[in-house]
């Protein structure tokens, strides 16, 4: 446990810093009220609005750990949302609608995984296919319009609450915890990291890297399906053009802010989810601050650059050293320790 905490400490500190920063421009940011049976406040909005990116980041973390990338998750959201809205408006009921959406996500993942693992296509190219074609597919399902529905059961996944907490927030929390347990309580995490670091050596060591690769893309599709369900339920309609648009990039950013290397290998789902929350806190903070919208992207980009630079491995030892010097502690850099160990 302490090891896990040490891993996510930079992300926790960053999140706290961003919350502090937003509170400076919008003092009521951390205020939470209880109104009409639900918790209300900007922090609650962050937890709820961050759901799609947090969910995508969970799947994306696994894909990136294998040295892959999944650009198609935004389009998969649109497909899954369209399937759910189509099923519900065709009168199939809630369970079939959810099943259709999740099946669509899993199929998308199977498609990507097969292209990558069986046909050996570069992940960025393989998933680009679905990224571009997927929205067209979703539009075929919605017939090019926003397919609206009025089914309170499905809408519950977007705007419902349980014990005062928004359902989308609960969904991503549950997904993150389940996936984290799944990979860490079994050997999946180790095996995924191994193929991400050295697929050839892992295959020779007997790891079924092909099946594992397909599995991570399926996991990513599964997460994207839930994100799509939430996005569709939220506006009570499937917007094939806009649902999940560019969210794949936010998800990748969340994984990177979470300190996971795009070169694959060691990963932390918790850190990625914190990365998603950091992004959403910035987004919500910008909206609350009331700056003209022309500044939105500039502010976001600036903050992201600052965060990434502060987390950069090239800078970290210097920062650590500077901190130690300022505290007057003996100077034993981590690099020095590494040399001594060799």
């Amino acid at each position: 446990m302490p090891q896990v905490f040490r891993r996510i400490l930079p992300q926790v500190l960053t999140l706290l810093a961003v919350i502090l920063l937003v509170s400076l421009v919008f003092p009521g940011f951390v205020q939470i009220d209880f109104e009409r049976g639900r918790l209300v406040g900007p922090i609650i909005d962050v937890l709820k609005r961050g759901a799609p990116v947090a969910l995508l980041a969970v799947g994306m973390t696994l894909v990136i750990a294998t040295r892959g990338i999944d650009l198609s998750v935004g389009a998969t959201m649109a497909i899954s949302g369209a399937c759910a809205a189509w099923a519900i408006s065709s009168g199939y009921g809630l369970i079939p609608a959810l099943a259709a959406a999740i099946a669509a996500g899993i199929l998308s993942g199977l498609w990507n995984g097969t292209l990558v693992a069986v046909f050996g296509i570069q992940p960025i190219v393989a998933t680009l296919i679905l990224m571009t074609a997927g929205r067209g597919l979703a539009q075929l399902i919605t017939e090019g319009r926003i397919l609206t529905f009025s089914h309170d059961g499905l809408a519950f996944f977007g705007s419902g609450t349980i014990l005062g907490l928004p359902v989308p927030a609960l969904i991503w929390c549950v997904a993150a915890v389940l996936f984290a347990l799944l990979v860490r309580r079994t050997a999946l995490g180790l095996l995924i990291e191994a193929i991400g670091i050295n697929r050839r050596a892992s295959t020779i060591a007997g790891i079924n890297s092909r099946v594992l690769l397909v599995a991570v893309y399926v996991a990513s599709g599964f997460c994207a399906a839930w994100a799509g369900i939430i996005a569709t339920a939220d506006i009570r309609g499937a917007d094939a053009n806009n649902s999940g648009l560019w969210l794949e990039l936010d998800a990748i950013l969340a994984v990177v802010i979470g300190g996971n290397s795009l070169m694959g290998g060691r990963f932390s789902i918790a850190a990625s989810v914190l990365g998603a929350l950091i992004i959403q806190t910035i987004d919500t903070g910008i909206l609350l601050a009331g700056f003209p919208s022309e500044f939105n992207l500039v502010i976001k980009a600036t903050l992201v650059i600052v965060i990434l630079v502060l987390q950069s491995p090239n800078l970290a030892p210097h920062l650590a050293r500077a901190l130690r010097i300022s505290r007057g502690a003996p100077l034993v850099g981590s690099s020095a320790a590494r040399e001594a160990g060799e």
């Binding site: 900007p42 309609g237 917007d239 649902s243 919208s293 939105n296």
Partner: peptide, 19 residues
């Protein structure tokens, strides 16, 4: 504030306006 012409955008930004 911009809602990008989308329902999701409109909803999210309106939530922040209400807050």
């Amino acid at each position: 504030q911009t809602g990008d012409f989308t329902r999701t955008g409109g909803k999210e930004v309106m939530e922040s306006f209400l807050q």
